[in-house]
């Protein structure tokens, strides 16, 4: 072992000369500022959109929320048809997506063997990766005609007396929107529910199995009650996605401001009216009214999202980043 006299002192002196003074506060400030930006974005979204819709708010008044007349030529802007359309399509789609999505989640976590669960899980995640506009394209040219010929016409012929199946079955309309939305909401519900179910302790299942419960009974007694609030959260998250979904719906719903119970009727949603009419909106007031709808949409989805996250966090804290991806 060679001794280099003075070597330690040399390095110690060098190090003491390289002592950084301001690096830490600067870096801390930088990352703090970045996260402040993210937080400020939410406030900024609300403020800017609110500011842009002031003209509309002043002119339209409360009738904006309560009336069903949308007549840009005569400067009447009432949003009820869009609110109705959004609630109707997103609500129906959510029910369907919950039925299928929670089923998928249970299947993936509790029933499927690993070799099956992995590819199926991946395929469900892939559903979320396909761009909305591609679903729209598929909806127009494949889904709508198929729905018309094989679902709507038979339903109309047999059950046409019911309000849901009245009207003219042409494919483009509420039903197509509901189906497309269901497909798009499904991965959100399925992926988040899967994470929530996976977070239920094994001991819950074992307790039920040890009582002699069947597989389904174990799920029903040991797993679902424990995961309930998380699954509800998954559903609400799916609702937020459905409410905010724009392109695919715009392309298949028909874009007519009518309030109808019929699945065959054309409709309109808040998001799709903004997307569809923005470029035609030549007057200030027209644009501002569309932005007012945007403001409403934003506030509603913010609220829904916040509630959903809180519910999911109670069950599966920290696992929500996957739903950000889904």
């Amino acid at each position: 072992m060679s001794v280099v006299p003075g070597q330690p002192d040399r390095i110690r002196t060098l190090l003491s000369r390289h002592r950084p003074r301001y690096g830490e506060p600067i870096f801390r400030g930088l990352v703090g500022l970045a996260s402040l930006t993210v937080v400020a974005l939410i406030a900024g979204l609300i403020l800017v959109i609110a500011q842009q819709s002031l003209t509309g708010i002043a002119h339209n008044g409360l009738a904006f929320l309560g009336g069903s007349d949308w007549d840009p030529v005569h400067q009447v802007f009432q949003a009820l048809p869009f609110i109705y359309g959004t609630v109707f399509t997103a609500g129906t789609a959510l029910v369907l997506a919950m039925l299928i999505g929670v089923g998928v989640a249970i299947f993936l976590v509790d029933l499927a063997p690993a070799w099956l669960a992995r590819p199926v899980g991946l395929m469900v995640e892939m559903l979320a990766a396909i761009p909305s506009v591609v679903y729209g394209l598929w909806g127009i040219f494949v889904l709508a005609p198929w729905l018309r010929d094989f679902v709507e016409v038979p339903l109309h012929d047999t059950l046409g007396f019911l309000p849901f199946f009245s009207g003219n079955p042409i494919g483009i309309g509420n039903l197509a929107a509901v189906v497309v939305l269901t497909i798009m909401v499904l991965p959100t519900v399925a992926v988040v529910s899967r994470d929530v179910l996976a977070a239920v302790p094994i001991s819950q299942r074992e307790a039920a199995l040890a009582l002699g419960a069947t597989r389904w009974e174990t799920i029903r007694i040991g797993v679902l009650p424990y995961a309930r609030s998380g699954i509800v959260g998954a559903g609400i998250l799916g609702l937020a996605r459905g409410v905010g979904e724009t392109m695919a719906v715009t392309m298949v719903i028909g874009n007519a401001p009518v309030i109808s119970l019929s699945l065959f009727s054309q409709g309109y949603t808040m998001a799709s009216v903004i997307a569809n009419e923005f470029s035609e909106a030549t007057t200030n007031l027209y644009r501002s009214s569309l932005l007012e709808i945007g403001l409403l949409l934003l506030m509603v989805t913010l609220l829904i999202n916040a509630v959903a996250r809180l519910l999911i966090w109670r069950v599966a804290y920290g696992s929500t980043s996957r739903s950000v991806l889904a």
């Binding site: 060679s2 280099v4 390095i11 190090l15 390289h18 002592r19 950084p20």
Partner: peptide, 24 residues
């Protein structure tokens, strides 16, 4: 790492230190 991350870049010194430290 302790030297480099403190901002010492002197290649010759780093080589020296690395060999010496690994030997010790």
């Amino acid at each position: 790492a302790g030297l480099k991350l403190a901002g010492i870049r002197d290649r010759q010194l780093l080589d020296e230190v690395a060999e010496r430290s690994l030997q010790r």
